[in-house]
């Protein structure tokens, strides 16, 4: 197994006095499904943007498939890494197949049209994501779940070894959340893609992902509201297999909420408990 994505001491700040990521080191091996978890403001999206080459780290190095990310041109990087952002509707009424085809744009012939190969890849991506049935409908006419699958299809059509997803399930109902994870899992298994996905659903991550990265905001320690000295200079993240990282203590510590742990089958299930939740005290004392 080779490290497909490797971060060494990566630090990033939008403003010098406000570090977002500090001293992150991480190795993601080929074909691994990694969940990125953490509170709002912990730098999850920033990390994804760094990996997509949209931002440059102020210090540290990022390696994609063995080469420094800075050594890739934009076009070259787009053949390694595909990005699915949080869902949105574009300004003009492009259809599903037009949208998916756009991932092939850098490969078009001189005349600005797709080659046969591009059409084959698009058809394959549509079939894989179950979006072929509404390929000619405009994006705006689709439901949130359907539209998100189209963006997955577009990322697949980019034909990259690495897929980055920024909260792929955030606007989806329960059924579509599960369907999305099933789809991502099948992409990982059948296509051998490395997947790095931001998620807020700890339990789905535990069920589907191999590894997890738990990020903690840099300055404020959870619960206390003050500065946590243990956060300096590193240590504001945990990484490992999902069962190692997503422990009850870690989640309680990072998110600053009480968590109820139970076991269903082979899976740990973590249930967050607010102060006002019904049976909150009884559940925890159990």
């Amino acid at each position: 197994m080779t490290a497909c994505v490797q971060l060494h001491e990566v630090a990033f700040a939008y403003r010098p006095d406000l570090p977002v990521l500090k001293g992150i080191s991480l190795a993601v091996e080929t074909g691994v499904f990694l969940a990125v978890i953490g509170p709002n403001g912990a730098g999850k999206s920033t990390l994804i943007r760094l990996l997509a080459g949209l931002l440059r780290p102020q210090s540290g190095t990022i390696c994609i498939e063995g080469a420094d990310i800075r050594s890739y041109g934009q076009r070259q990087l787009a053949t390694k890494v595909a990005l699915v952002q949080q869902e949105f509707i574009p300004a003009f009424g492009f259809s599903v197949s037009e949208t998916v085809l756009m991932a092939r744009t850098p490969h078009f012939s001189q005349s600005g049209f797709e080659r046969q190969e591009d059409r084959r890849i698009v058809a394959d991506a549509l079939a894989m994501t179950d979006t072929a049935a509404f390929a000619s409908r405009p994006l705006a006419d689709l439901s949130g779940g359907e539209r998100q699958r189209v963006f997955i299809a577009r990322a697949l059509a980019q034909d990259t070894p690495i897929l980055l997803l920024d909260e792929p399930t955030s606007f989806l109902d329960l059924k579509h959340q599960v369907a999305m994870y099933d789809l991502l899992k099948s992409v990982q298994r059948e296509r051998g893609r490395t997947i790095i996905a931001i998620t807020h659903d700890i339990n789905l991550a535990a069920q589907y992902c191999d590894q997890a990265l738990l990020l903690q905001p840099c300055s404020a320690a959870p619960g206390t509201g003050g500065t946590d000295p243990s956060c300096e200079p590193v240590g504001q993240y945990r990484t490992g297999t999902t069962s190692e990282v997503l422990s009850r203590e870690a989640i309680e510590n990072v998110f600053g909420v009480r968590v109820f742990l139970t076991r269903v089958g082979i899976e740990n299930v973590l249930l967050p408990l607010g102060k006002m939740a019904k049976d909150a005290d009884r559940a925890v004392s159990r």
Binding site: Q74, R75, A78
Partner: peptide, 9 residues
């Protein structure tokens, strides 16, 4: 962002 991540200058 989308365009950039798809390799467009």
């Amino acid at each position: 962002t989308d365009a950039q991540s798809m390799g467009i200058h």
